[in-house]
Design a protein around this nucleic acid. Structure first.
Lengths: 147, 147
DNA sequence: TTCAGATCAGGAATGGTTATTGATCGACTT
DNA sequence: AAGTCGATCAATAACCATTCCTGATCTGAA
């Protein structure tokens, strides 16, 4: 999404693109992962130590509301934010909490099929996957050897 | 799942099927929906007022651990529990919070495809869908008329 | 029955998130 | 440039689902 598109999104929704909101967006771009609000807060704070955690939460919720960012919430861990707003698969390691995308696998026609099979007006779909990341699998194997 | 199967699940995992855990299971059966821990607590309490909310949480987590029940966690609402442990689609109304299943739509080969495309060892997959339920859509329409 | 370990009730504590409040900012007018 | 009004902000308190902790109680094996 270009700078101009983002600016338009803000204007359309009646919000302004303030320096704090821009800083939160920049932090998301820099981390390139799936940071939590806390992670974003720490990144933003490096450049502007006066920012409060609450401000980051507020900025994130505005950014999500106007459709510039997306979020996913696995239980037992804070909500993760993401610049990728397309439906896609994210997997979270149940050992270390790391979140990463699973490339090359789409939801196919799943969304259209479910729209056909429910009387609800579907507004959002999320696929949450949990597993053990390669690094943690390796650790587990090494620990198993010692026993 | 039969009484005997459930009993076996407990024994295999080294847990005992106590009266409280049985009561929690019964409450889940009775509600037939997707109750929260609080809902289960209130149901259980009707028959046994001495049960504490913490006990219900503990029982639910044991039941989930041994694979007798499943759970799903939408952000902005408490975790919902479910006797249906097969992978399936649940939709939550963003207005009233009601959760219901979407029958007739399966995940297809999605799970096998994602296993092929990640180095993680996949342990759990969840599909979370949000929307507006028919009742709330109707309410919205009626309110729109008045304006 | 007795004992050891599992489980329980009750309540305090935790942690992510939201609400509140007074201060500050920023665009627009004069 | 100064004034004005609403939006936004920082800081902190509050919230709420969930977990943790403690001493009491129950359960099942011997």
């Amino acid at each position: 999404m270009t700078e101009q598109e983002i600016r338009d999104q803000f204007r359309q929704a009646g919000y302004t693109l303030t320096s704090q909101r821009r800083a939160v967006l920049e932090a998301l771009k820099d981390s390139k992962g799936h940071p939590s609000a806390e992670d974003v807060y720490l990144t933003v704070k490096r450049k502007n130590p006066r920012v409060a955690l609450g401000t980051v939460y507020q900025a994130l919720s505005v950014l999500e509301e106007i459709g510039v960012i997306g979020s996913k919430h696995w239980s037992e861990s804070p909500t993760r934010y993401d610049l990728n707003i397309e439906p896609h698969l994210d997997i979270r390691c149940v050992k270390c909490g790391e979140v990463s995308e699973i490339p090359g696998v789409g939801l196919g026609d799943l969304e259209s099929r479910l729209r056909e099979n429910t009387a609800y007006e579907v507004t959002n779909t999320m696929m949450l996957v949990e597993g053990v990341c390669p690094a943690c699998r390796k650790k587990d194997k090494e620990r198993a050897k010692l026993l």
